[in-house]
Design a protein around this nucleic acid. Sequence first.
DNA 1: GCCGTTTTCGGCCCGACTGTTTTCAGTCG
Length: 580
Amino acid sequence: MASLHKKIVTLFEETADMLEVNNENPFKVRAFRNAARAVEGVGKKIEDMAQQGKLEEINGVGKSIAEHIQDIIHHGTFPEYQKLHKQIPSEVLEMLSIPGVGAKKARTLWKELNIKSIKALEHACHKHLVSEFSGFGKKSEEKILAGIEGLKKFSDLFRFDEANAEAAKLLSYLKKSSHLIQLELGGSLRRHKEICKDIDLIASSNKPNKLMDYFVAYPEVASVINKGTTKSSVKLQSGINVDLRVVSDEDFPFALHHFTGSKEHNVALRTLAKAKGFKLNEYGLFKGKKEIFVSCKNETDLFKHFGMDFIPPELRENQGELEAAQDHALPDLVTLSDLKGVLHCHSTYSDGKNSMEEMALAAKDEGFSYIGITDHSHSAAYAGGMKLADIKRQHKEIDALNKKLKEIQILKGIEVDILEDGSLDYKNEVLALFDFVIASVHSRFKMGEKKMTERICTALASPYVDILAHPTGRLLLEREAYEVNLAQVIECAAKNGVAIEMNANPRRLDIDWRYGKLLKEKKVKSCISPDAHSTDQLDFCNYGIGIARKGWLEAGDILNTLSADALLKHFSQMRKKRRC
DNA sequence: GCCGTTTTCGGCCCGACTGTTTTCAGTCG
């Protein structure tokens, strides 16, 4: 997310927290949370929208919030935020991150007990000062202390791949239970969000008590947070929380839909249901005032009742999917089997762990018909970047391998560094040796948005650059993206016929799915690339597919759904276009 | 504060679990 987007989202979320602590109108609180979500999902540059007076076109942004956004753009903050910030110490807000402490409790602790920070709260709990107060008991103290311990020990966010691996193990454990009828993954994992807070599982059973007993007995459970007949929560040893919901088999489609979310999608669908005379919750769809249960076999059936096509879980973010489903205009999302080859892979010629032959054979085993070997260019010394002699040696070896190997073709590619001034790490005559060129930024991240945008756009104007790789350089939960105006970069890519990579490495997942619609609108192609540094990383493509689907992308939007011949023809046509 | 098939005012999704209290408020998703 661009830094301004992020700033607006943070300020609105903090405002919502502060309003809540101040016990103000809950709907105003919700309005700020909605606005934060809405801004987060905007794939366009917010400054441009502000300048064009289009902020109020964002669903959830009205006159007042549009003014706040203008204030943030020009002054970095807005008056209402500053006023609240003066009243409420920021450490009081930090207490909201403790599980079980919400706005009301935080307010009571602060106003009645003069506790203003997590540290002070921990001290007060140890001294049993909290349990003496009305509304809090011994258990509350224990829960707060356990929550504080948890905060110290674990970050509460996990990358998709980490959460998915934990979920897969747990699913296979639960499937062994004889008390289970149906079981599915739900929540943000099913929606393929790049970052997850927890794992949601939905099951149907005739003996929920027994299933819950089996669930909390999972050997990797570190602690049981709560246990009931329809909902239980545990924390695993890895630190991630898991919620299991159990319903009757008849209710399963409704529960699955409900707990897949997103919250915003659910609210929108329920509002729509209400307008059509239905009530929708996790236990069913109910018609009319008498609330007659409407049976549904599955989610497809459920959507059908609203005149909608089935909405793939990845799209359920209330970003226009309900309207598209009603108009029968949902995209035909790309799938793994659409990919004919992979384009961004490293070998022992730079920092890869496997030889080109090993990489090619592994790609063939994955069902691909071509692999683009793209080792690092000279400047990437940390990654063993190639000198001219290495390139010649590599190309000779590729020619020999292409004669020897059946059913897999190796394309000669390069991942060339974009230098500080936007020039490329090799001269044009060297770049001309390759079938295709991927360009990327690996150095000087902190040059500021304007310079970085110019740097990348300069590179995209090179006649030889075919693909821009990992356009923001982010490492999820590790390193922030460098500041860059992606909307402008996409514009440049459109002008020059350059594709923008969907880097499928689960630490990157860059370009962000929120830009998918803009790529489509500007007719900029993407490619789903594993950025594999070993044979086992070729299956990173799975993660990239999830993110591409989340960005509404179809096979026709993705370059590596083309055959090798068609792909090379595409690159050659675009290079001609750039030279004109 | 937002929004409109209930349309410029009045409603805004809905239910489970927990802890503390004895009927419910707070938290969470």
